[in-house]
Nucleic acid binder design. Sequence first.
RNA 1: GCCGCGUUCGUCUAGGGGUUAGGACGCCGGCCUUUCACGCCGGUAACACGGGUUCAAAUCCCGUACGCGGUACCA
Length: 354
Amino acid sequence: MDNSLTHSKGVVRMRLESGEENVIRLRVPENVTVQFNDLIKGAVKVDSTNIDDQVLVKSDGMPTYHLANVVDDHHMAITHVIRGDEWIPSTPKHILLYQALGWQPPVMAHLPLILSPTGGKLSKRSAQRQGIPINVRDYKAQGFEPQAVVNFLALLGWNPGTEEEVFDLEELVSAFSLERVGSAPAKFDLDKLNWFNAQHLRRLKTGALLERVKPFLDEQGMVVKDDYLRKVCLLVHDRLQHAKDLATQFSYCFVDPVAYDPVGVKKRWKSDAASLVNEYSVRLNALTSFNEDTVESELRDLAASREVGAGRIIHPVRLAVSGTTAGPGLFALLRVLGQRTCVRRLQNAVARLG
RNA sequence: GCCGCGUUCGUCUAGGGGUUAGGACGCCGGCCUUUCACGCCGGUAACACGGGUUCAAAUCCCGUACGCGGUACCA
């Protein structure tokens, strides 16, 4: 020990006057129990022998966090300190400081930590390795709904006491209380976040969805008129999990398919496909009123006259028009794509798939 | 090492002396359907372990194990 307590006053004064560097520490009382009542953890007790004499003012004259924090909070009249679990060990130091300064400590609440899915705290590095966005910017870039992220995070450690779990911000604000925050750490679950995202996306009105989705279309260099985009949104709204899905998974709503899913081709493009699709395209082209009903009755009519099941035409047409085997109801899709586009794509597929 | 905080399905959690231990995500099956989603219905799966206390313990107490955090003139 080399401090002012271990030397005579004379020596201390001499060393001070000689300009020797020094720090100012908190003199932690010996053998007392420092206790505080945490709103989340309950009573936390620490023996003062486990607390070092904390540096309060560094040798360069700057206060340490511990001092600054306490002084700041007091002067700002802070009533509640709500922070992560990792601060629990320094809280007794702060309590001691409040006592030393003769101030009333604020209410303390220590939130459980968010852990990586593999355990351990969710650091930037561990998160990235597991495909978990870490910066708010990354959540935006990946098309996460702000409300979904907040909702998901809020339910990590807190629960409303009911079985409700999808909350928008306002609902959350009125439902939340520190009393219902648990004290065990929680692992980040990307699957569940994705689910929350889909829930929140579905709650969006079409107009709002439009705005969410546009940046991702821009990113892909897709220029789309609002009224067409609106129709597409109406068509696929329930099938989106992330805002960017429209520009990726449903890109065929905006550009002709560049390839046809090989598995789908094998399964659905039978020997009579080209002939059926070709004939359907001729019929569509001749339509004077192009809507869901007319494209459907043309198709069923064709199926009947060729004596095949409707599926024998529906599946190849879907493949021709979207390049995939999955998607919205075919007739609604055709209606949205429009007559010219449908005819063109059907012809292309006949030419390319034979 | 020492100090602290934790431990209910794989994950998020409800429940806190007597419950068929509830819900959600995921997964599996079914229904719907031209496909895939959505939706709906059903299934899978948990009280870390050992001692107490008690008529009765997932629930209260102690210990162990395990996990996490903190141990700076960082925040």
